[in-house]
Design a protein around this nucleic acid. Structure first.
Lengths: 106, 106
DNA sequence: CGTTACCGTAAGTTATAACTTACGGTAAGT
DNA sequence: ACTTACCGTAAGTTATAACTTACGGTAACG
């Protein structure tokens, strides 16, 4: 997922879909790249589970995939959690060390 | 920031720093790339505000930057917010349309 | 003061992925 | 049936960025 959001064009597409679902043509119109390029980026975003699509007539409407969004959020939250936890542990360990060596500095 | 986390090697470094602060040598030891490569990635991560470093003796200890973490989280939360909001609006609009046209389908 | 350990940067190479043009295929409209 | 609109994919090019080797520079250590 982070890989998919690593490209600026893909982020632009992603944010555009955050405002409203759109067809490939509409997305390409607002971007400095060709329509096939947008199609390829959408394929990657879809592969990452960040985007869904529905066929309506001759057009293909893309929109954000809520499941993908929450999945990404969960991953980040989990990482935040473990990072902060180990950080806290480290601080506590340091404090203990200081206390054992300590009380007499100052 | 998402650009910085777009590279897998950089994510590996990032996660490793999530467990414990480390010197460049220690990071490189656990990775399939050379030490200079790790240095370059760290430079990018630092530029993105995701990582801090402290010089201790001849070693340079890198650790996660809490400010950068919360910044990234804020950005994502904000995006979640606007995306879900416009999604909600869209659903409501669709419901209204159905109601106006409706009651008689089925 | 010489040696060792650790690091950042420069230069150059290589691999990757972003992009364009070209093509074929399906759905709607006349 | 022909045309038009929209789309995905293939092939090929180009730009980018990831990586290695080589170098120079600072801090500890004998």
């Amino acid at each position: 997922m982070l890989d998919a959001l690593g490209d600026p064009t893909r982020r632009a597409i992603f944010e555009q879909l955050g405002e409203r679902p759109s067809a490939v043509v509409d997305l390409a119109e607002r971007l400095p790249v060709s329509r096939p390029a947008v199609s390829q980026h959408l394929k990657i975003l879809k592969g990452a589970g960040l985007v869904r699509d529905v066929q309506v007539g001759t057009r293909r409407i893309y929109s954000l995939d809520p499941a993908g969004l929450s999945g990404l959020r969960d991953y980040l939250d989990r990482f935040w959690g473990t990072a902060l936890q180990s950080f806290k542990k480290r601080v506590e360990a340091d404090n203990e060390k200081e206390n054992r060596q300590g009380e007499q500095h100052d």
